[in-house]
Design a protein around this nucleic acid. Sequence first.
DNA 1: CAAATATATCGACTTTTCCCGATATACCAA
DNA 2: TTGGTATATCGGGAAAAGTCGATATATTTG
Lengths: 83, 83
Amino acid sequence: MLEWLKEPEINFPEQLQHAGFEHGVCVGQIQAKAGLTQSTVSEYLSILQRAGFIESTRVGQWTYYKRNESAFEALSKLIQSNL
Amino acid sequence: MLEWLKEPEINFPEQLQHAGFEHGVCVGQIQAKAGLTQSTVSEYLSILQRAGFIESTRVGQWTYYKRNESAFEALSKLIQSNL
DNA sequence: CAAATATATCGACTTTTCCCGATATACCAA
DNA sequence: TTGGTATATCGGGAAAAGTCGATATATTTG
């Protein structure tokens, strides 16, 4: 999922028509692609969010998730320096 | 454990008298510091070895483990570029 | 407000991981 | 070769993570 969210235009072409990608990708799109149930995907995304890897934006009935690149940078540096 | 192996002199002073650190630290020393059973530590180290993060050298009845820094570099870069 | 849609949360079940004791293997010393 | 020490492997029970269906919450539309 994290890799998918790197290139929303390529991985979620469906969404382009309904909304842009400025807030990220909505749960339903990710769920469809993942092939897991709605509840599983929702929980998974919320875990990633708590961990800081993605950010959510609620727009109407949709919740959009997008990557927080700085968290990946930080993880990469953490491995370099602390691990 | 991976952090401990970054500075063997500091984290495993006991071993200094018996052997140097050129081959790393032996399982017994790591086990004592970890506070886990011998079997658990042995298995854990072998997993880290299979994953490429540490290397082992057998010297007599002892197996010494030391870090493989290039694996950490690679992981850090992988997160930067692929994730 | 009622129905429809999108997402979040809950409880239960399954799968995986963690950790242990027991035992096997390898090496050394007498 | 026998006994002692260090490590590895095996089998099983406990803990954690993954996944689901059912249900709750939030929002939009009529």
